[in-house]
Design a protein around this nucleic acid. Structure first.
Length: 424
RNA sequence: GUGGGUAUAGCUCAGCUGGUUAGAGCGCCAGGUUGUGGCCCUGGAGGUCGUGGGUUCAAACCCCAUUACUCACCCCA
């Protein structure tokens, strides 16, 4: 093998896989459009100061930095970085385009980069499918984020998933109530692991981090439902968002209030949500929340916003494992063989006619024996082949072969076009 | 950032306590079948055993280093 390598955590996506991938993206984008989230794209790179300080310490460390072009390479100076998510670039766009009508809804399906250690379902370059609503207060817009994720997963064929819902200010109140307001982050990180390491595990971790047994006991009381001072408004907002999401058609079974859901990113200020497959085991496939303070960091004017992101890579890994990516792995419907120089014009006429009729068609470029040509079509996943030998050319017909069943029929070109246009 | 695992043909891997020409399946090419793929049969091409050092009469195998990939932790989509 030639001594060439891909950068760590990055992959080529070959055509056969790309076909399936585009179907998934297209399904998601159709749902986005049904909700009125119009597409937006932003550059792969942002200026470094646009990204830093938005995600928290852990996040900042994972920002993929880019050496300053042309100079400073030796010293490792950076002034740009690959985007870490799609939310911060959106906030920048909003700040730079004050003329946009509010509320502003947009979708964005683009890769993001994180300088993480790769593992299963985790890559350094991966696509997020993001929707955000800017300029709308807590309520309908948050519920729409939940509903759109719900509908995307259903459209892709997932049924067993749970959208967990919590509120950042409830967690802040929790931290305050146990006299750990300045250690909210640590507290949150620990209790977020509840479903993974259990109560004992969380207690042990909190002890290890220097929390007292008294604080820990109080945390459990509050998580178990004891009244929490200062959390009334947050809870009312969650009630409202939950009710609206249900009214929008979200299945009650799939929406779960969870006081331990935290979300890692610093910029969240209100309701936060995350989706896990109940039979999954790949971490979350979607995450989001309200970030009322982020845009203000760019333009000085506080503009409320809420958004959610689907992790395309993880969805595809899971769909592959579960055989949910059906259908042909080729976009080409019919493979036109070339029998000989004499019949080449007839084959060319056929392939052109298919293409003009909107039927994706390829002509055998490499030639060779008929069997080899059929094999070429089959191995590419093309469902049909057309053979035009001397007999068919003389009669003005084509032989259409279903490569899956092996059935053949001789018919006119226009009938063949009708058949392929209609058949699925 | 922390801890494991792996690296041998295009792909997936086997290769015993070191032993002489390094194997299999799949794929590829050719033929069996000059108008038919998948199944079957026959033959063929294809490997500096990741890289660099060391030990040894002898290294794919042992030791050291290095690089790459990968899995898990942290965190995340």
């Amino acid at each position: 093998m030639a001594d060439v390598h891909l950068p760590k955590g990055m992959r080529d996506i070959l055509p056969q896989q790309m076909i399936l991938r585009q179907r998934v993206i297209s399904t998601i984008q159709q749902v986005f459009l049904r909700y009125g989230f119009a597409p937006l794209e932003t550059p792969a790179m942002e200026r470094i100061e646009t990204l830093t300080g938005k995600y928290g310490d852990e996040g900042d460390k994972l920002i993929f930095r880019v050496l300053k072009r042309g100079e400073g390479g030796q010293q490792g100076e950076v002034d740009q970085a690959l985007r870490y998510d799609l939310t911060v670039p959106l906030a920048r766009v909003i700040a730079m385009n004050p003329q946009l009508p509010m509320p502003f809804k947009r979708s964005q399906v683009q890769p993001v980069w994180r300088a993480d250690r790769p593992q299963k379902g985790r890559f350094r370059e991966f696509y997020q499918c993001d929707v955000d609503t800017v300029g709308a207060p807590v309520g309908l817009a948050d519920a729409e984020c939940i509903a759109v994720v719900h509908d995307c997963l259903l459209a892709l064929g997932f049924t067993d998933f749970t959208i967990r819902l919590n509120h950042r200010r409830w967690l802040a109140a929790l931290a305050l109530a146990v006299n750990a307001a300045e250690r909210e982050g640590e507290l949150i990180v620990a209790i977020d692991k509840l479903d993974k390491i259990g109560r004992d595990g969380v207690s042990r971790e909190l002890l290890g981090r220097g929390f007292t047994q008294g604080q820990i006991d109080r945390v459990w009381e509050l998580l178990d439902g004891a009244p929490l001072a200062g959390s009334e408004q947050a809870l009312a907002e969650l009630d409202q968002v939950e009710a609206l999401a249900l009214a929008m058609g979200v299945d009650r079974q799939r929406l779960l209030r969870d006081r331990t859901l935290a979300r890692g990113l610093d910029y969240y200020t209100g309701p936060v949500f995350e989706t896990v497959l109940t039979d999954g085991g790949l971490g979350s496939v979607s995450g989001g929340g309200r970030y009322d303070g982020l845009i203000g960091m760019f333009c000085g004017r506080e503009i409320p916003a809420v958004g959610v992101s689907l992790g395309l890579e993880r969805l595809i890994v899971l769909m592959e494992e579960r055989g949910m990516l059906g259908g042909s792995s080729s976009a080409t419907r019919v493979w036109v063989t070339v029998f000989s120089d004499e019949t080449l014009p007839a084959s060319l006429a056929a392939v052109s006619a298919f293409r003009q009729a909107g039927v994706p068609a390829e002509i055998s470029l490499a030639g060779g024996k008929l069997g080899k040509q059929l094999k070429a079509a089959d191995s590419r996943g093309v469902p049909f082949a057309v053979v035009i030998g001397p007999d068919e050319a003389a009669a003005g017909t084509v032989k259409l072969k279903d490569l899956r069943s092996g059935e053949e029929q001789v018919l006119s070109l226009s009938l063949a076009i009708d058949q392929l246009g209609a058949a699925s």
